[in-house]
C-alpha cells in the first residue's frame, strides 16, 4: 500500500510524464494522432487483403476491433523495453518511485488507445454495428490496462538485467498474436476443440479481453463464464506478478544502467 501512496504523492510527476510521452509521440503536430492510427489501419488493410485472397471469411468490424485492441498491448510490449533503460540518466541521477516510468508509458498509450477507440466506434456505427453491450466497456478496459501494465512492469525491469530480451520478445509477441482471436473469431476456433481445451485457450488473458470487446462493440457471443473468469483472473494476476517482481528488482536499477 506504501507503493500506492508513493504514486499518489507523485501524481504530478506521473501526469507530466504521461503528457510528455504523448507530446513526444505527436511531436506537437496536428496530424500526430492520425499518424498513430496509421499502423493499425495498415495492419487491417493487409490482413483483410490477405485473408480475402486466401478465401477466409473476413468480417471487417471484427477484424478492426481485434487489431485496435491488440495494438494497445503491442505498443506497451514494445515501449516497455525502453521505459527504464531509455531513462538511464534519470534513474541514475534522481530518486523517485521507478514504477512511475512504465506506468506513465502504459497510461500514455492508454490515452492514445481510448482516442482511437472513439474512431473505431464511429466507424462501427457507420458500418451498421449498434455497439450493443457498452456496459462491459469499463470492466474490460480496466482488465486490459491491468494486463498491459503488468506485462510492461515485467519487461521493463527484466530488460535492465537481460538486454537480449528484445530478440526473444519479437518471437513471443508473434506467438501471442496468433494465440489470440485477432484475425480470426472465436467461432472458428470453437468448432475444432473440445470444451476442456476451449477453457485452457482462455488462460491466454487476451483471448477473453478481445472477445469481450467484440461482445461490447459488435455483439459477438460471449464464451462461458468459467473461460471468461479465467482470462480476467490471469490478467490481474499478471499485474500482481509484475508489481512484485518490479519492486524486487528496482533497487538495483541504478547500478545496472
Amino acid at each position: 500500500m506504501g507503493l500506492c501512496n508513493d504514486i499518489v504523492r507523485r501524481r504530478e510527476l506521473l501526469g507530466m510524464l504521461i503528457r510528455r510521452n504523448l507530446k513526444i509521440r505527436y511531436k506537437n503536430s496536428a496530424l500526430g494522432f492520425l499518424w498513430t492510427l496509421l499502423a493499425p489501419l495498415s495492419l487491417i488493410a493487409i490482413y483483410a487483403l490477405f485473408l480475402g485472397l486466401m478465401r477466409f471469411p473476413v468480417r471487417l468490424p471484427m477484424l478492426v476491433t481485434g487489431i485496435f485492441v491488440w495494438q494497445y498491448l503491442a505498443m506497451c510490449l514494445g515501449d516497455s523495453l525502453h521505459a527504464i533503460v531509455g531513462h538511464g540518466n534519470l534513474v541514475k541521477k534522481a530518486a523517485f518511485p521507478r514504477i512511475i516510468l512504465p506506468l506513465a508509458m502504459a497510461l500514455a498509450n492508454l490515452t492514445n488507445f481510448l482516442l482511437s477507440l472513439i474512431v473505431v466506434g464511429v466507424y462501427l456505427a457507420f458500418a451498421g454495428a449498434s455497439l450493443p453491450h457498452l456496459g462491459w466497456m469499463p470492466a474490460v478496459v480496466l482488465t486490459h490496462l491491468a494486463l498491459s501494465v503488468g506485462v510492461s512492469l515485467l519487461l521493463s525491469s527484466l530488460n535492465v538485467f537481460f538486454r537480449d530480451l528484445e530478440h526473444l520478445l519479437s518471437v513471443l509477441t508473434m506467438a501471442w498474436f496468433f494465440a489470440t482471436p485477432v484475425i480470426y473469431s472465436l467461432e472458428e476456433v470453437a468448432g475444432r476443440f473440445g470444451a476442456g481445451w476451449m477453457t485452457a485457450y482462455f488462460a491466454n488473458p487476451m483471448a477473453g479481453i478481445v472477445t469481450v470487446y467484440r461482445h461490447a462493440l459488435v455483439g459477438a457471443p460471449l464464451p462461458g463464464g468459467t473461460a471468461l473468469a479465467l482470462s480476467f483472473a490471469v490478467a490481474w494476476m499478471v499485474l500482481v506478478a509484475g508489481v512484485v517482481i518490479f519492486q524486487r528488482l528496482q533497487p538495483r536499477f541504478a547500478e545496472h544502467l
Binding site: 510527476l13 510524464l17 510528455r20 507530446k23 513526444i24
Partner: peptide, 19 residues
Amino acid sequence: AGFHPDLTGRENVFLAGAI
C-alpha cells in the same frame, strides 16, 4: 538529467521540478 531534448526549456523546468 531529467531534461528531454524534444521538450522546450520551459517544459523541462517543470518536468525537472516534478522529478
